[in-house]
């Protein structure tokens, strides 16, 4: 009997709550009717400053929500992006260390044009090469390069042979000179003064080189195989390019 009585109480409670809900709906309806009735009555002037304050509040809320959403989305996306970059980095590192062809492409000739000088770096490369013909070759010149063409009137006037660098200087009767240097070390750097100079990339026997013109002095620098070459002279640049293209290896 007590259970039945408790059940009855629960049901009555539910009925009362339903009545309360109905009361709430009636009250809401009354509010709307009262507002509509008052709409025809006396107007209370709406202050403009309140409008400004609320618009400012809405803008602030909009910004706050946008920032919150951005960080929420970034939190979701960031781990995936991080994983992607990590995998890419590992893959790149593995490729560099294990695949020589890939490494060669990456470690190729790097030419940096900086503000007041051009730094030409010779980095890792490997290619065999050979050809020969004899002209204007210094004595005891073995396994070194020489110019097979120099403009008419030029002769060897000086030869310097150091451990890594070999230099041949050509001069004519007028005192003009051509300085040809070669360095056979894979980590050789050469500094060329390019401040206020005219520079252009050129092709020397299929290799990329750079021509620098400053104050009448022409300088060509290029690499071939493991060697770094340079030609410096005040002669016409086209003649100098022709000389550069004529280098051969004396075996």
């Amino acid at each position: 009997m007590k259970d039945l009585y408790d059940e009855k109480l629960k049901s009555e409670s539910k009925i009362f709550e339903a009545l309360l809900e109905y009361a709430g709906a009636c009250h809401v309806n009354n509010i709307i009717n009262d507002l509509d009735a008052e709409a025809n009555g006396e107007e209370v002037p709406y202050p403009e400053e309140l409008s400004i304050k609320i618009r400012k509040m809405l803008r602030h809320h909009k910004r706050k929500e946008a920032v919150k959403k951005f960080f929420t989305s970034a939190k979701k996306v960031f781990p995936k992006v991080a994983v992607f970059f990590f995998v890419a980095f590992i893959g790149f590192t593995l490729a560099i260390t294990t695949v020589s062809a890939f490494r060669a492409r990456v470690f190729n000739l790097i030419i940096e044009i900086k503000k007041d000088y051009t730094d030409i770096k010779l980095k890792e490369n490997s290619e065999p090469n050979a050809s020969s013909s004899t002209s204007m070759v210094p004595a005891n010149w073995e396994n070194e390069y020489y110019l097979s063409y120099v403009p008419h009137g030029f002769k060897i006037s000086k030869v310097e042979s150091q451990e890594i660098t070999k230099i041949i200087q050509y001069t004519n009767d007028k005192g003009d000179f051509i300085i040809f240097s070669q360095s056979s070390n894979e980590n050789t750097d050469m500094m060329v003064d390019t401040e206020n100079a005219v520079t252009q990339k050129i092709d020397v026997n299929g290799y990329e080189g750079i021509l620098v013109q400053k104050n009448g002095l022409n300088t060509i620098v290029w690499r071939k195989d493991n060697n770094l070459f340079s030609l410096m002279s005040k002669i016409d640049k086209n003649e100098l390019i022709k000389a550069a293209n004529s280098i051969k290896l004396k075996k």
């Binding site: 309360l20 809900e21 009361a23 709430g24 009636c26 009250h27 009354n30």
Partner: peptide, 22 residues
């Protein structure tokens, strides 16, 4: 109920609406 709710104190009617209607 519809009639008596009009006679209730406004605060009471409001809170009944918020709790049981909304």
């Amino acid at each position: 109920v519809s009639e008596k709710v009009k006679e209730l104190k406004t605060e009471y009617a409001d809170i009944i609406s918020l709790k049981y209607y909304y």
